[in-house]
Design a binder for these strands. Structure first.
Lengths: 323, 323
DNA sequence: TTGTACGCGTTATCAG
DNA sequence: CTGATAACGCGTACAA
């Protein structure tokens, strides 16, 4: 079904049908004819061809590293909420934690096309930065700090510092840290640096050889914790770069070192609701993920509708929980 | 940047550039010229305009009720894996558990357009069924049984029946069930019916007034469990329609009825990894979610490439865990 | 108020 | 092997 066929069936020109669809001048009489035909045929205009003409789709592309993450779903919730209110739609793409795929999907989005892109970022490579700078459509980065685009991020450093300094006092043994790659500037480098600063402030430091690097999974937290606890019997705090890793740490303790359960504190980042429900809540950091989604969506729609092209950097606070 | 501009800069026709891009006949000499210009300008063809001509995008749209769900992310993992191998890309849309939004996004996908749609279904209304039947592009439904499209679903009934019959023997008190709406034929009706059949087989039945209807959230499981446990002091099994609800049930017990913790068995569906890690694993049903994603993606790409239009109904098995 | 004609960026056809 | 040119489905000046 094309607009031409509808026009023929209704005995009018395709322009009239187009105007009918988009609220232009059409006589009452022709409106009726057109409406009838459209109802009967179930005709839907091709968004596709329309975009080719109008250059905007009222679609926002959101690129995420994975979807099985509570923090990410909170962000997309926030985005979806604002976009819905402002009459946009959201399309998601997942990259399975592969930065190259982020670029792949951003290009697809750009050419497909969507009106704007929100990137929930992990590692920003040179290629990313080039893309951000050269993009023809607005991009907002969530979760990482960058000069190359508007961004919304969390105060990972200070959160980690405060968490560490407040928890470290309780420790009489070794303190361990399950990190994630420092290439991830937010969850990797900033949290780790903040942690070390916080420990120092409390007159402590990580135990020798008590740092391990995990990936963003439960299994990884499980394995690294087993190794650590096997090596040292006096670890009494395990900080984890994410609550997901913390879940793996808890599993390891539960399964292989149950006798040490009471002695070891496991702390994380993210305030995972699932974890809170079934454990009663471990010490963790609550970031305003939903808020960052809301702000991100507001930002990008503003850029779209007001041609605001001055990049904005926005840092969001945090709250310590269960501490 | 358009193909015409590239053609001009390279001193060839736009047709030659198009052939260069799509592997047609171009002399070695012109190839070089074109490549140079494309590299220098960073030109990317508009997928958009290409689709207008070719009618296919090598894009598959996947509609999901929410993304903060482990089962759903396992399905999309499976889909993404196959699609990647077969040189397709995946676009996701979330509907926030609102069936109307499912239709909205399926229409967007259809007109946008994508080559095929995978719907991870919850409630199939009449409008859904009409849409499925009339769709011009292939649709695969995952998670629900339907005659109106190819579908892949799980054996919820028998899984629930076996789970119930094997667990019921241990009970000496009241048995409770936290259901979800029966409008959801799979997670709602089938599991509940299977559960009742399983209990009956074991010579038991649900306690009077011991069925409550929850939504698919932790909070909801928490509230309903509080109410149940307040009313009856001899409940010793709580079956939950999903592991997420089960997490809420565990939270309620932990927080408000810790003294009854040892006496109450909480069982669920879905084999949630997070839950398994931190609790050691509650009795639950493992469905082949990733498999259903894989099969779904294979199905739809086959339909696309072989014009197989005979609908296929595929039922997948299950495994009981931690029982 | 209406219809004609053109353009959006590609690919496919066809004559060279 | 190459280059004009028509077509894809729509929106919109412009002329009527």
């Amino acid at each position: 079904m094309t607009i031409k066929e509808i026009a023929q069936l209704a005995g009018v020109s395709s322009a009239a049908v187009s105007r009918y669809l988009n609220g232009g001048y059409v006589s009452e009489e022709k409106k009726q004819q057109i409406r009838k035909v459209i109802e009967k045929t179930g005709y839907r205009p091709s968004i596709q061809a329309r975009i080719l003409r109008t250059k905007h789709s009222r679609l926002i592309g959101v690129v995420v590293p994975k979807i099985s993450s509570e923090s990410i779903s909170r962000i997309t919730d926030g985005i979806g909420q604002v976009l819905g209110q402002r009459n946009y739609h959201m399309l998601l793409a997942t990259t399975d934690n592969q930065p190259l795929k982020e670029l792949e999907y951003m290009e697809i989005f750009q050419n497909y096309p969507v009106d704007g892109i929100i990137l929930i970022a992990t590692i920003l490579t040179k290629k990313h930065r080039k893309f951000l700078k050269e993009s023809k459509i607005p991009i907002v980065v969530i979760g990482q700090h960058t000069q190359d685009a508007s961004c919304i991020f969390h105060d990972d450093y200070r959160a980690a510092k405060e968490l560490a300094s407040r928890l470290a006092g309780k420790s009489r043994g070794k303190i361990a840290y399950l990190a994630v790659t420092r290439e991830d500037l937010a969850a990797g480098a900033s949290r780790e640096d903040g942690l070390n600063a916080g420990l120092q402030q409390a007159g402590k430091s990580l135990g020798t050889d008590c740092r391990a690097e995990a990936s963003f999974t439960i299994e990884s937290g499980f394995e690294k914790t087993c190794e650590l606890l096997k090596k040292y019997s006096d670890i009494d705090i395990i900080f984890c770069a994410t609550d997901t890793i913390a879940a793996g740490a808890l599993e390891a303790i539960l399964k292989h070192f149950p006798e040490r359960r009471e002695k070891i504190t496991v702390a994380g980042f993210g305030d995972n609701q699932f974890l809170k429900a079934v454990t009663g809540g471990i010490p963790t950091v609550h970031f305003g993920y939903k808020t960052s989604g809301i702000k991100g969506a507001e930002l990008i729609t503003d850029m779209l509708e007001q041609d605001q092209n001055i990049p904005i950097q926005m840092k969001l606070g945090y709250e310590l929980r269960n501490i």
